[in-house]
Amino acid sequence: MSFWLTVIRQVGRNLRQTWGSQLMTLLTVSLSVLIFAFFYLIYSNMLNLGDKLGDDLSLIVYLEDEPGPELQQQLTNKIRTFDEVESIRFVTRAEAYDRFAVQLGENSDVLNDMPKDFLPPSIEVIPMKNLRSLNQVKLFSSYLARLPGTLKVQYGQDWVERFYYFTRLLSIIVLLSGTLLILTTIFMVAYTIRLTILGRQAELELLRLVGATNNYIRTPFLLEGVLQGLLGSSFGIVSLYLLFQWIKLRFSGPGFLNLFEFAFFSPWVSLTIISISILLCTVGSFTTMQKFLRI
């Protein structure tokens, strides 16, 4: 009989004999992968959203008076002194009024009694794409606020800060759920393999005595770990995919989820999560064997 056929038979026998604990481990691994992947999915989508919003990031510098051509050149030079920017655009009071009227649409008649110069002039600064971190944006904003004739600088501070802290929180949750995944997969698999080993002490002793090699005895346990990782993580990822599709279906239409493209993992990311789970389960299985399966 070939080595692998014998090993597969042994694995089948192990699974039959300890199906209860094997099932519990499988569910635990699945659940851990599901929890981790769920948060990681939200996190990666938030990062994508952050990138997308970052593309549209602009700082608006409101000025006391409309700058003349010379002052415009001076301000442009001062802005470029801080960092390279993608574009700088001066908006006059009249342009600001027109824009506002367009934004009001059908309600633009509310402006009828207002003077055309009631809005302040401004400078729209679109930073370079590499200016992404909140601190950098804050620094740039305070630099712009110190420019002569500046009333205030706006870039949606509150919103940007909340978004930044939300993604920070998500990254911590992803780290925690990742740690949970590592601990549960390694320890649960190790515990199950340990139970199997203890339950089969008599058989393992006999196998040693009739001349079974280390590989003959150990490979089935390793394969069990690999199977737990493969099935558990695949089940977790498939469950998340179904959950994702369900949420998409249920919450389709106008709403928060439609503000941005909410995407599932690429096959590559899914495969990476499955591979890492397999690796962790194999490590759990291996460490238990080293400890309890002395040959």
Binding site: E203, L209, G211, I295
Partner: peptide, 22 residues
């Protein structure tokens, strides 16, 4: 040790007093 010991044991058949049956 290891593989060599396993190979030797494959060449030795032992009928134990306590049987060691599964």
């Amino acid at each position: 040790k290891g593989h060599k010991l396993a190979k030797l044991r494959q060449k030795i058949g032992v009928a134990y007093q306590d049987f060691k049956l599964l």
